[in-house]
Structure formats: C-alpha cells, structure tokens
Design a protein around this nucleic acid. Structure first.
Length: 129
DNA sequence: GCATTGACGAAGG
DNA sequence: CCCTTCGCCAATG
C-alpha cells in the first residue's frame, strides 16, 4: 500500500467510528508491516519517516491501537532507539514480544536486542521514496 | 479546560 | 555510565 506521506500528524487519530480521516495509524501500520523478518526498527525511525520525528511517542501510541488492527501488525519488530523491548508489557504476555522476535530469528538478551544495529531497518532508507 | 501520562529521544548532570 | 529533566502531541482524568 502506498503510504499517504503525512506531512503532519495533525489530522490524526479520531477513532470515533464514523470519522476515519486519520492517516497516522494507517501509515504506522503500513510501515511496520513492511519490516522484513529478522529486522527491527525504532519508534523514532518510523516517526522520522512519517515526518514527525519529534513525536516518536505518538508512534508507540499508535501501535497501542494496532492490537485491534487487521491483518495485524508485527509490533514486536518495533522497539525504542536503544533496542529495548519497552512495549512487551502491552502484549498478551511479557514473553510474547520476545517470543515473537525469537521466531523471527532475533535474539534478545537482558531486554535488549542482540546485534540491534546490524538488523536495524530504517524506513527512511529502505523505503526511501 | 487544566493536569497528568506515555510502547520515545535527546541533552544535561 | 546512570539518572533526571525537558520537549513532543494526543488521550484521559
């Protein structure tokens, strides 16, 4: 799907049933779903790609709503800039995120992804439009 | 409508 | 190198 290059996140989130003008969620989902298996990225990288690097928190917030999204978003591939699984508590179980990453062939040691920088996937580069 | 919080990140101590 | 503070912007109390 083509990311609707959101210049601003302003028109964001209105999960109010009828109004679905929010591109924020769609964009985040779109990017996250394109993360190759075995690769990971950060909230900041996604935010930067969407042009809102100063609001990386919004990306995490969007992923929080990704739970009810279809076909599902591999949120385990999105961690903070330090490669830490900060969002694991938002999964069904704490181990779920780490488990999913292991399935992708990504090792985690002490809450931190091993070789994080090596498998880092930057949408601004990989998806470079 | 103001105050607090947050799946972040950069900077300062 | 670890911890604290501040900025960001939308949601929630």
């Amino acid at each position: 799907m083509t990311v609707k290059s959101t210049k601003k996140i302003k028109e964001t989130a209105r999960i109010s049933g009828d109004v679905k003008e929010y591109t924020f969620f769609e964009d985040v989902y779109g990017v996250v779903r394109q993360i190759p298996k075995g690769r990971v990225t950060s909230y900041g990288a996604i935010a930067a790609y969407l042009g809102t690097k100063l609001s990386a928190r919004m990306v995490g917030w969007a992923l929080n709503a990704a739970h009810h999204a279809t076909p599902g978003v591999p949120a385990q591939r999105v961690v903070n800039r330090n490669g830490m699984l900060t969002g694991k508590y938002h999964f069904k179980d704490e181990k779920e995120m780490e488990n999913l990453l292991a399935r992708d062939g990504v090792s985690v040691s002490e809450e931190r992804i091993v070789n994080f920088e090596s498998i880092f996937w930057d949408p601004s580069i990989e998806l470079a439009l």
